[in-house]
Simulated scan of single mutants.
Amino acid sequence: MKNNTDTLTQIPEPSLSRFLFADTRMNIFWTLLRVWLGWTWLTAGWGKLTNPAGVWVGDKAGTALTGFLQGALTKTDGDHPEVSGWYASFIQNVALPNATFFSFMVAYGELFVGTALILGLFTGIAAFFGGVMNANFLFAGTLSTNPLLLIAAVGLMLAWRVAGQWGLDRILLPLIGVPGAPGKLFEPPASKPKTPAV
Rank of each mutant, 00 (worst) to 15 (best):
N3Q: 07
N3L: 10
N4I: 08
N4D: 13
T5P: 01
L8V: 14
L8I: 11
Q10M: 10
Q10R: 14
I11W: 10
L16C: 02
F21V: 00
F29Q: 04
W30A: 03
T31S: 11
G38I: 11
G38H: 10
W39F: 11
W39H: 11
T40I: 12
W41Q: 11
T43A: 14
W46N: 13
W46E: 09
W46V: 14
G47D: 10
G54P: 07
V55N: 11
W56F: 12
L65Q: 03
T66I: 09
A72F: 05
L73N: 06
T76H: 07
H80F: 14
P81R: 07
S84F: 02
G85Q: 12
W86Q: 02
Y87C: 04
A88G: 13
S89I: 00
F90Y: 12
I91L: 04
V94E: 11
F101M: 13
F102Q: 04
S103Q: 04
M105E: 09
E110N: 12
V113S: 01
G114S: 08
G114A: 08
A116M: 15
L119M: 13
F122M: 14
T123C: 06
A126H: 03
V132G: 00
V132K: 00
N136C: 10
N136M: 15
F137H: 13
F139Q: 11
F139T: 00
A140E: 03
A140I: 04
G141N: 04
T142C: 03
P147F: 01
I151E: 00
A152V: 01
A152P: 01
V154R: 01
G155F: 03
A163V: 01
R170Q: 13
I171A: 08
I176H: 10
G177C: 08
G177V: 05
V178I: 15
P179A: 09
G180R: 07
A181S: 14
G183V: 10
L185Y: 09
F186Q: 08
F186Y: 15
E187K: 15
P188I: 09
T195V: 10
T195I: 12
P196T: 06
A197Q: 07
V198S: 15
